[in-house]
Design a protein around this nucleic acid. Sequence first.
DNA 1: CTGAAAGCGCTTACAG
DNA 2: CTGAAAGCGCTTACAG
Lengths: 351, 351
Amino acid sequence: MQKKVSIKDIAKHLGVSTALVSYVLNNKEKEARVGPEMAERIRATAKEMNYQPNMIARSLQSGKTRTIGLIVADISNPFFSNIARVIEDEASLNNYTVIFGSSDENAEKSDSLINALIKRQVDALIIAPAEHTEEQLKLLRQQKFPFVLIDRYFNTLDANGVRINNFLASYKAVQHLAKQGYKKICMVAYQTRLPHMQDRKQGFFKAMEELKLPLHEFSLMESSYERIQEDVAAIMQRLLDNKKDRPDSFLFATNSLAINGLKEINKRKLSVPDDLGIISFDESDAFDFFYCPLTYINQSTERIGKEAVRILMNQLEEKPGKTSTDSDTTQLVIDAQLIPRESCGEKKKKR
Amino acid sequence: MQKKVSIKDIAKHLGVSTALVSYVLNNKEKEARVGPEMAERIRATAKEMNYQPNMIARSLQSGKTRTIGLIVADISNPFFSNIARVIEDEASLNNYTVIFGSSDENAEKSDSLINALIKRQVDALIIAPAEHTEEQLKLLRQQKFPFVLIDRYFNTLDANGVRINNFLASYKAVQHLAKQGYKKICMVAYQTRLPHMQDRKQGFFKAMEELKLPLHEFSLMESSYERIQEDVAAIMQRLLDNKKDRPDSFLFATNSLAINGLKEINKRKLSVPDDLGIISFDESDAFDFFYCPLTYINQSTERIGKEAVRILMNQLEEKPGKTSTDSDTTQLVIDAQLIPRESCGEKKKKR
DNA sequence: CTGAAAGCGCTTACAG
DNA sequence: CTGAAAGCGCTTACAG
């Protein structure tokens, strides 16, 4: 690396003080009442010497880095990479950049990620929190560090957040399945105590109850995150190979669960929607290319990302006349839409 | 935000100098020959006061941020988000974090992204360069700024890079199609002069020539990046609705092209592999769920990401006894594998 | 209109 | 064994 040119180099080159250069380059010539010719000369040599301001120095001075830290479960999961893209664009509009990290649903990783990002002085965090991270987040709150949770939340933590109405989304999915004639519904979810997932499970049970659909031992099946492939394979094997008493439909709680589940269904030559009805949360190219396009619950990554950044910006770029305080908290619950396609026999009914 | 505790606060609290605190917290007590009891007291109060070092200050001092900038076409494209995940993990092993940005294949965006990241003092860049960015990159080289290109490259630019053997991959794909009995092959590629894409096209033509397969006006069809959906739809419409003289197979140059193409094929109730043989570059969940699992050319995102970081680390963490200079350049060409599945009639032949 | 100076939080040769 | 001091590149009140 060749030595970078600094404000000092420009000042020396012109025989003026660094202050002058700084004022001009920050367009504060009026405040400092710098002469217009001088200003022009400074700007010219800055360009000529290919001066690039050192944001690190500026950050040390200002205490702000204009950087947002993004922590998700796994950046390679399309749900999160789509959100990341939206956040990138929104942040960019506000002149912020984004550092990211993947927690793998692991509380320790999350903790070290949060610390690493804070040491790097990110101005704020956007977090899809993993299980058992309430304490880390409470500490952040306590320190009044700005952050907003996405996708997930905690009951015991009063914090900014954006999420869908998980309970209702599940509830409606079950209603939809029932309306299409399915009765023995199996929900495949993650084995976790994260409230957003619990809400999905409870919405499921609530709807089953209201519809007076009997529960079976297979009604709720749970997979771990770490061994999703093996777990879902085992679940599907157990349920599908039992010809006598098997579910007639599945509600998958995430795209990854669905993709793993569908692979098992395919292996067994079971036909959707005739043998099995299917609904999944999230989107996936795979859902479009499954021979019977999947009915799914759409979580708008666009809205989640945009709103998360908006909430943060409101907090960071506080106007003088603001009424809210650091202790106020914004929680946005986005209405998730059920997108009916063909995997619950929608096409048949119409015929 | 509550005031952060600094090294100075600890020093004041203990009535010692900041230097002492700094030495101890950096485990340089021996060099500074600090007393073990003193060291212990310092460590204790640091923990007690929940001290977090300010990396910004450290960076200003050292000139290093231990941050890598990653510029891809679009972080929400699974190919790139998979690479991003690998890079994140590899960087993390070396105590680096990653800032990312999406260029949307746009040279101006790329330029402003590069500048923004350099202003933020990233130590190095990993770039999947867009068209018309040679000049920006040449400037980087000239300034001896460390970077490595992934996926793409430029003939006129001598720079670090990791990519697959694009020419050969295409070449083999055509051979595979021909072996399966397809003759009227159409390659659907991006309309760009980026060499990696040109290589794919040339590999295609070379194989066609060697196999003495006649070219048609539809042999190479090109889509823009910005309007991929419309362009591919138009291409497929023109080709597939012409019953008399239409291709009997497609080679898609990327996953996005394939996904858009397959949707059009599905609409027309054409059957793969009977009516059409298909091969695509890249991977996708969609390829697995297409009724006829796609034969594809696997670009190992794992290897691309790992090698990119490795090359960078070699350059950044230069050992004293190193022989290479800043002007040396590493270009790694990874062998891409053709993964035969069913979309070229592989199963049929065997029966 | 312009410059000297302090300071952001840290590191590190240097002097005692 | 320990501390005073300079410096990383910038900003900004303050003095002239």
